[in-house]
Simulated scan of single mutants.
Amino acid sequence: MLVIKSKAFIILILAFGIFGIINTEMGVIGILPQLAQYYDISVSTAGLLVSLFALAVAISGPFLPLLFSGMNRKKAMLLVIGIFIIGNIVSIFAPNFTVALIARIVPAFLHPVYFSLAFTAAASSVSQDQAPKAIGKVFMGVTAGMVIGIPITSFIANVSTLQLALLFFAIVNIITFLAILFFVPSMPVKEKMSYGSQVSVLKKPVLWMAIFSAIFILSGMYAAYSFFAEYLESVTGMSGGLISLMLVLFGLTGVAGNLLAGKLITNHALKTVVVFPIIFGVLYLIVYLLGSFTVPMVILIALWGVLFTFGLNISQYMITSSAPEAPDFSNGLFVAFANLGVTIGTIVGGAFISGMGTQSVMWSALLFLTLGFVAVLFFVPLARKDYKRIAN
Rank of each mutant, 00 (worst) to 15 (best):
L178M: 11
F155I: 06
E191R: 14
S197Q: 13
N158Y: 03
S154I: 04
L166K: 02
K133Q: 11
S160F: 09
P132R: 01
F168C: 01
A224C: 04
M140D: 00
F139H: 13
Q163D: 09
F177D: 04
D129V: 14
V201L: 10
S194K: 12
S186K: 14
S213H: 12
G141N: 00
S154W: 04
F169D: 00
V189F: 07
I156D: 01
V138Q: 01
K137F: 10
S213V: 13
N173I: 02
G136A: 12
P185G: 00
M146Q: 11
P151D: 00
M193D: 10
V201H: 13
E191V: 12
P188F: 06
V189Y: 07
L167A: 15
L164M: 15
L218H: 06
S200C: 08
G141W: 02
L181T: 14
V138D: 03
F182W: 11
M146Y: 12
T161F: 05
S154N: 08
T143M: 03
S127L: 10
I171N: 03
M209I: 11
S160I: 05
I175C: 09
M146I: 15
K192E: 12
V172D: 01
D129L: 13
T153Q: 01
V172T: 10
F155Q: 06
A134E: 05
S219N: 12
A170L: 07
G196M: 06
K190I: 12
Y222T: 09
I148Q: 03
V201D: 11
F182T: 10
M140W: 06
F212S: 15
L181C: 08
V189Q: 08
V206P: 13
L164V: 02
P132A: 01
Q163A: 14
K192A: 15
M146C: 04
F177H: 08
I211R: 11
S197A: 11
S154F: 02
I152N: 02
I217G: 04
T161S: 11
Y195R: 13
A157R: 07
Y195C: 10
L167M: 14
